[in-house]
Design a protein around this nucleic acid. Structure first.
Lengths: 257, 257
DNA sequence: TATAAAGGTGAATCCGCAC
DNA sequence: AGTGCGGATTCACCTTTAT
């Protein structure tokens, strides 16, 4: 890498297959939720079938699981021996990702809950207001010695919502507001994560100089957090509107320094 | 039922098979986590195999999924057409339960996070302190009209931890302290849930007079919450120490009234 | 009698050390 | 190299002592 970041435009599966195995220290991924079978076609090179016998067929279940097994297995190849991966999602996708991690031999280190104290209200009144997302953090294998910056995490204080007090251990439930709309300029990604969330993950799970990958990088928040804290970054994104946005966000950051 | 509750001692699979189909309005279950393959043998009557091809085999994965598919499918038969089920667990079990619900055609209504503000500390300093459990709430089918007591839920106030303010919508992240040791007498269940948690679930998901089932009822907290709020209850538990405890907890409650 | 401060206990996992 | 033991770790809660 010439610079300390690279945004690659194109299909995640194809680009993941071209990257250098064993070189990434940390991967953050917010994969598509694959809701409502929206025309996304997945043709896996690997054979993974789930024989559900006479159980009801849930439309698209096999294809979704196959999709997650495929990109996660590619990520496993790219991770260094002590590397870790963090996958974010909601109930629509996260169980399949969790299962895929188990099937692929990862060791789950934590299930982190991102609680959104300013989450959108529920308009139907038929259930509870959805106010969180889940992040599964896992190491490549049971034997690996993963990075965890324990002391760095103690400085965080979620006192705004009293989830913990400063100076104590960091818990696995984080209260972080969603990025307000007014800060989201034209073209920002619909599922953009707050910068603070990614900063926390990067600071917890990586060392300075480490190489970070985001295979579905969107508007590049993972890259911003990584470069901001002197980690190197590779992002993959197929929409050119987002690759441009990601590049400019990270470049502006570098200029500001 | 002569009284408004019944505790059945024995094997959950066998007893579930004997109960009257379509009669339960709400099921709460905290199934075993099946950790470390501790000799629990599961022989499913249904054929469910997961062909993992050349993926790594995670010891016990198939058996665990089969176990959850089996008891959940039995529960589906027992649910009334508009009934719902709530399944609690940690990352060790909850992904398989979520997958099983999807495979069996349930409609997931919410993923509720029980945040434990007083959760046990992490002693290793190698990851974040685990401070939550997950509860998946699902209806029997996409078409069913489930019960949700929207207004009743607005009275709750998590202000002790500022997760919400009284009078607003109830979110899907609940801050409820674990039951302190001093309130757990001899013989109490190791994974006993706080009464407040079960009360909230029962009040949200059932009407007065409804019939509630807990297939792994332990020390009977689900029964206490149900009877306390004029719901009928059936619990299943194989350990006689816990069946006795559950009966006495619910009887004492009735005496007090 | 209440409230406050101080001290002791327990939980699960990883590490190093001895063999 | 594999096994096995003991120590270290953190926080909430319980008990004891002090004001």
């Amino acid at each position: 890498m010439d610079t300390n970041f690279e945004i690659l435009k194109g299909d995640s599966f194809k680009i993941l297959a071209q990257l250098e195995p064993g070189t990434f220290d940390f991967i953050f991924a917010d994969p598509p939720y694959l809701l409502s079978n929206d025309g996304l076609s997945v043709k896996s090179g690997k054979q993974v079938s789930v024989n559900k016998g006479d159980w009801d067929k849930s439309q698209g279940f096999d294809e979704d699981l196959e999709f997650h097994l495929r990109w996660i297995s590619q990520c496993k190849v790219l991770l260094s021996s002590n590397g870790t991966i963090a996958i974010s999602g909601t109930r629509h996708s996260i169980y399949k990702c969790g299962i895929a991690l188990e099937m692929l031999g990862f060791r789950i280190l934590n299930e982190i809950i991102w609680f959104k104290p300013n989450g959108a209200p529920n308009l139907t009144g038929r259930n509870f207001a959805e106010s969180h997302e889940t992040i599964i953090w896992a190491s490549k294998s049971k034997k690996s010695k993963h990075t965890f910056n324990y002391e760095a995490m103690k400085v965080y204080d979620d006192s705004g919502d009293k989830l913990k007090s400063e100076g104590k251990q960091m818990r696995d439930v984080w209260s972080i507001p969603t990025t307000p709309m007014r800060e989201k300029g034209h073209g920002k990604h619909p599922t953009q994560k707050p910068l603070e969330l990614l900063e926390r993950l990067v600071l917890a799970c990586t060392k300075e100089g480490d190489l970070v990958l985001d295979p579905f990088c969107g508007s590049g928040t993972t890259g911003v957090a990584s470069v901001m804290h002197n980690r190197k970054f590779v992002g993959i994104e197929k929409e050119s509107a987002y690759t441009k946005l990601a590049i400019s966000r990270i470049k502006n950051l570098k200029k500001a320094k």
